[in-house]
Nucleic acid binder design. Structure first.
Lengths: 185, 185
DNA sequence: ACAGCCATGTAACTCGTTACATGATTAC
DNA sequence: GTAATCATGTAACGAGTTACATGGCTGT
């Protein structure tokens, strides 16, 4: 029982530690909500069941401590957890982003599909993009007033701006593509 | 033996079928190279071993046919493979992109890291971005002359332009972030 | 001779998902 | 009372990875 301390954790584990690094104590359920609100834009929001199993592992490793009963347990970082996370931030190899883009993948094969399907797909993507962007901007607004240098949410604010700008630009690209597809017909 | 025909294939299987939909016949090895050159920008380039196992499954399902011996086997689409792929293009739910962005994830937690580390990370990301973009633009150039409406590589060209524009914009965002981080210090 | 590429696979393993199951608390 | 939300887990499974193993062919 327990975990092999010599093995590296998956990045998702560090991400969850990161979500716990803002000073509060969260239940698995709340942690999942926070992941849905923020983490999902730059990483992935793990399934509920994975949140619980990951918390169990982190607890076994002594990186988080729990309080409360079986009915409702909340977790917070231990000092070891905090130092492991800081160490990961400072020394782990970063790597290049991986994008799984089902719209681009299908556009690549656009010749195989009904032309109307391609157009609809891109239009639907525009709508989805707007929705996601609105959700992200809501998060961004909730950080206002605590987003200046030295404030606790400065970095989350920077990342949220990054995401917004990404969504905004993606919109203009897709609009462009729609135009190019139609002028050529 | 054989595969359960009622089950859906993973998207990666359709992606591989898609790479075989340009009329030629490829070995597993060549298919992996094509994935490394193109697919990796919008999806993921599967490991060598997965390419082989996926090809075996597609063969079992009658979606690709093989020619050659055990020394070197090349695969091409069957008409069933082609119609399954077209059907997937026209009817499958598309879904929103998933981005796993280790740089953004770490920037979110930037407060925990050495400030120099954050800066270096972003600068390294700029360099990596330029490399990736150069690779993609090389692909794009190889499509020139066959990228007009009606040409075989029109859609791949559109997607390559999408990718280029994405890399370009990501560069400007990161440059902006670097500026914002330094003016606030 | 030796390096590097072409080519094909097997085995073990982890991550992460979906489906399932349970029950308490809160709001209407 | 009943629906939604809060809360926690188990089980089965699939996708995809890394490590390993093999061997032919090509260029120098």
């Amino acid at each position: 029982m327990g975990q092999d301390l010599s093995r590296d954790l998956p990045i998702t584990a560090y991400a969850l530690l990161g979500l716990l690094s803002f000073g509060d104590s969260l239940t698995g359920y709340e942690l999942k909500q926070r992941a849905d609100r923020t983490l999902r834009f730059y990483w992935v929001s793990p399934a509920m069941s994975q949140v619980y199993s990951e918390l169990e592992r982190l607890h076994d490793l002594g990186l988080v401590k729990s309080q409360g009963d079986a009915r409702s347990t909340s977790y917070s970082l231990t000092s070891r957890g905090s130092s492991v996370l800081t160490d990961w931030m400072n020394t782990s190899p970063v790597g290049f982003p991986v994008l799984k883009h089902p719209v681009a993948l299908r556009l690549l094969l656009g010749a195989l599909a009904d032309p109307a399907r391609v157009t609809n797909m891109l239009r639907d993507h525009l709508a989805a993009l707007d929705e996601e962007r609105a959700a992200l901007e809501q998060v961004r607004h909730s950080l206002e007033g605590q987003d200046q240098p030295g404030d606790p949410f400065r970095y989350p604010a920077l990342v949220a701006d990054w995401g917004s700008s990404y969504f905004e630009h993606e919109r203009t690209i897709v609009e462009d593509l729609l135009r190019r597809i139609h002028e050529g017909t």
